[in-house]
Amino acid sequence: MYILLALIGACVLGIAAHYLIGGRELRGVAVTPAIATALAAAIYTGMQWLGVGEDSIWLWLASVLGSVLIAAAATVAIVAVRRRSDASARAALGI
């Protein structure tokens, strides 16, 4: 049941990261929160399998904050790729 706390926390922080990162018009509104939530589930589960207990701060830091940081980096990368592809499409069209 504690995994739900990690997932909700990662999703909420992912929503905040969506609004803090520029280029919102170039990606979907659910991209960053979805990446953060999926990563939080994978990290939490993996650390539980490795024997880290729910009372460990490292489980919570890695699953909630770590997943949001990785999701933010992925979002920045998505925006950069989209800007480059848009620029090359404009150049190809002569706009």
Rank of each mutant, 00 (worst) to 15 (best):
V52W: 09
I95D: 12
V52Q: 05
T75W: 06
Y19D: 07
L39A: 00
T32H: 01
R27K: 08
L5I: 14
A72R: 03
S85F: 02
A89D: 09
L7A: 14
S63R: 00
P33Y: 03
A10G: 04
W60Q: 04
C11Y: 07
V64Y: 07
E54Q: 12
A73F: 14
G22Y: 02
S67V: 01
I8Q: 05
V76I: 14
P33V: 04
L13A: 09
V76S: 06
T32F: 04
D55K: 13
A16E: 13
S56G: 03
L59I: 08
R24V: 04
A92L: 14
A74F: 13
G51H: 02
R90E: 06
R84F: 08
G46D: 04
G9K: 08
L26V: 00
V31H: 06
I21Y: 05
A10T: 04
L69S: 06
W60T: 02
T75G: 10
I8P: 06
V31Y: 10
A38D: 04
I15V: 15
L93W: 05
G94K: 08
H18S: 12
A73P: 02
A92C: 00
I3V: 12
L61G: 14
L20C: 14
A91K: 15
S63W: 00
G66I: 00
G14W: 00
M47R: 10
T45K: 08
A73G: 15
L13R: 00
T37D: 07
A87S: 12
A41M: 13
G23R: 07
V76L: 13
S85T: 10
G14S: 06
G14P: 03
I95T: 12
A74G: 06
D86W: 02
V76K: 10
A36W: 00
A92E: 13
V76N: 08
A72I: 10
A30F: 11
R82Q: 12
V68D: 04
V81W: 14
Y19N: 05
L5M: 12
I70V: 14
T37R: 03
I3W: 04
L39Q: 02
L39K: 01
A73H: 11
V52L: 14
A42K: 03
R83E: 13
R90V: 00
L20F: 14
L13N: 07
A34K: 01
L20K: 10
R83Y: 03
L20D: 11
I3Y: 01
A71S: 07
I57Y: 12
A40H: 02
R84T: 08
A80G: 06
V64S: 09
L39D: 00
G51Y: 05
A40M: 05
A74E: 03
I78K: 09
G94S: 11
A87D: 12
V29C: 03
A72Y: 12
I21P: 02
V79S: 09
H18N: 13
A36F: 03
